[in-house]
Nucleic acid binder design. Structure first.
Lengths: 221, 221
DNA sequence: CTACGGCACAAACCTACGTATAGCTCGCAC
DNA sequence: GTGCGAGCTATACGTAGGTTTGTGCCGTAG
């Protein structure tokens, strides 16, 4: 099933490695390393520089020196998180300490490498990071369609959806919302159509993926 | 030896901190620290010792010196993972390095503290670890009932369940399995009863929680 | 003003779901 | 063999789900 060879060609574009390091020789060395295995590379010399660039639209990862001019790599990590950019980060450090490492890892860094960095370690880390980003993007994409269709629902349809997905019968939904059962049925049909759900099971999974709260949901022990 | 008495059959809910350290003074200091904030404590002097003890039945966490007689803390972490014991681990180290830290964090450690450890840091870490374990246990418990009920289903009932939860209509399930529609209906009723599902929505969520594969599931983009 | 969309309901009609009752075969344990 | 449970089906009946067609009210954008 999972074929390695076709992954490079298929998917949503070639992955890219973003490098942020103020040392030109380091940037050059890393760029060469990644290009030698066929990865696209984009290099930056400061945190500010990459924050101005547009977030990549393909699976990618960041290789980040922890010590950067201006803000530290950890600050950049926090800024990216605040900006809702979840590109996986690999840190490099010349003189890092353990608390710094722990903080970075707790904030979601995929790896934390010490100089001198062994080429293979870096490539392994980048490989893992890009794979992680690819999975995240796939998951994101799979619900984005659902989300946009949900946005197209009217307020009332959303009310009905929440209760229907909770497992209530039409008559219970009607009672809950002060409607006639026939009205609920009609909304329900519109919901199925607008959401593109072929079955109630579909609809339930969509609402769960959207994180819509259940009014009477349980799953008792 | 056995400075750890019997542990008073914890009233299911009181968390406990498990300490593994070969230094008696460290054990004593940590024990005092945790007891001062009302936490139960059990101390061990080696990895082997704690592997022989029964896994705790209450929310708990491990405070582990990375350097232990015999095996290292990282080995113990790996052994516990292999034994399917997921108690959160907080490492302490006197002379750890960054690769060690990264390895521990990647393997799921909640924190990695360097000596001398500040009391408040340790308490914060333990608090977070216990909270994490409590959540994991809650989640585990909530599906254990579902899982055991699923075990009580007959082979055919499971077949029907998988297809019904995929969103197929009774007639489609019947065609898929080479049955009459009425047969599917009857199994379906038995499934609802045995699984304790009040609605199809319930059933769908149960099957998802159990990780039962969907035959025609989609959630298209 | 008019058009449009959201909201709400009704009658009629059809399909899907669910249960009760009853009967059949097969394999397995006692 | 006898009993038992799983597996399978049928008839019959009642309930729940779902669509179509048509009506009406309200607010707002043009």
């Amino acid at each position: 099933m999972t074929d390695h060879a076709k992954q490079t060609e298929a998917s949503a574009g070639d992955p890219i490695v973003l490098i942020v390091d103020d040392d030109p020789s380091m940037r050059r060395a890393l760029t060469n390393l990644f290009q030698s295995v066929g990865l696209k590379v984009e290099a930056f010399s400061s945190a500010a520089e990459i924050m101005e660039a547009k977030p990549p639209a393909v699976p990618s990862c960041l290789v980040l020196d922890i010590r950067l001019p201006g803000s530290s790599g950890l600050d950049l990590q926090a800024d990216l998180a605040k900006a809702n950019i979840h590109t996986p980060i690999i840190f490099i450090t010349g003189h890092g300490d353990i608390p710094m490492t722990v903080r970075a890892m707790k904030s979601g860094a995929v790896d934390f490498l010490t100089k001198p960095v062994r080429d293979q370690d870096m490539l392994d880390a980048v490989q893992a990071a890009i794979e992680r980003d690819r999975k995240r993007r796939d998951a994101e994409k799979s619900i984005s369609g659902v989300r946009s269709r949900f946005e197209g629902l009217t307020a009332r349809e959303r009310d009905v959806l929440a209760l229907v997905a909770s497992g209530l019968m039409n008559k219970q939904v009607a009672a809950e919302l002060g409607l006639a059962e026939i009205t609920v049925k009609i909304y329900r049909g519109q919901i199925m159509r607008k959401m593109g759900a072929k079955s109630l099971a579909d609809l339930v999974r969509m609402t769960d993926a959207l994180g819509i709260p259940r009014n009477r949901g349980h799953l008792q022990t």
